[in-house]
Simulated assay, not measured.
Amino acid sequence: MKYAIVESGGKQYRMEEGASLKVDRIHAETGAEVFLDKVLLVGDGEEAAAGQPYVPDAKVACEVLEHGRDKKIIVFRFWRRKDSRKKQGHRQEFTRIKVKSIQA
């Protein structure tokens, strides 16, 4: 099984052909094809090729399935003896993609 480690949105993801996963928001239309070219490592089970920092001429073709927002997390800060606190919520935007092919 061919796989790749790809950097997207400041995070690293392990991608395999046919898999779908959530990544940080990618600005592309639903149904569009996007190419992720920051490939750090490409492997096929027995051997792997690592880049310095990226593998040259390697890219992962993905299809954008949907855009959405994750569940809300609460950021609560509390300062003792100051009668002060702050409550803030955040919902991270994401893009669900499906890996079509890994080209190396």
Rank of each mutant, 00 (worst) to 15 (best):
M1T: 09
M1E: 10
M1H: 12
K2G: 02
K2V: 10
K2W: 08
K2F: 12
Y3G: 05
Y3M: 10
A4W: 07
I5V: 15
I5H: 00
I5A: 04
V6A: 00
V6M: 06
E7R: 14
E7A: 11
S8N: 14
S8D: 06
G10E: 03
K11R: 12
Q12M: 06
Q12L: 04
R14E: 08
R14L: 11
M15K: 02
E16L: 13
E17G: 03
E17L: 05
G18Q: 11
A19V: 13
L21Q: 02
V23T: 05
V23W: 09
D24L: 13
I26F: 13
H27K: 14
A28W: 13
E29Q: 14
T30M: 01
G31P: 01
A32V: 01
E33C: 02
E33H: 10
E33I: 14
V34W: 13
L36D: 02
D37I: 07
D37V: 05
K38G: 03
K38Y: 07
L40K: 04
L41F: 04
V42Q: 02
G43E: 05
G45M: 11
G45A: 13
E46D: 14
E46I: 06
E46T: 12
E47D: 10
E47P: 01
A48V: 10
A48K: 09
A49H: 10
G51E: 02
Q52H: 08
P53T: 01
P53K: 04
P53R: 03
P53H: 06
Y54Q: 00
Y54P: 00
V55F: 00
D57V: 11
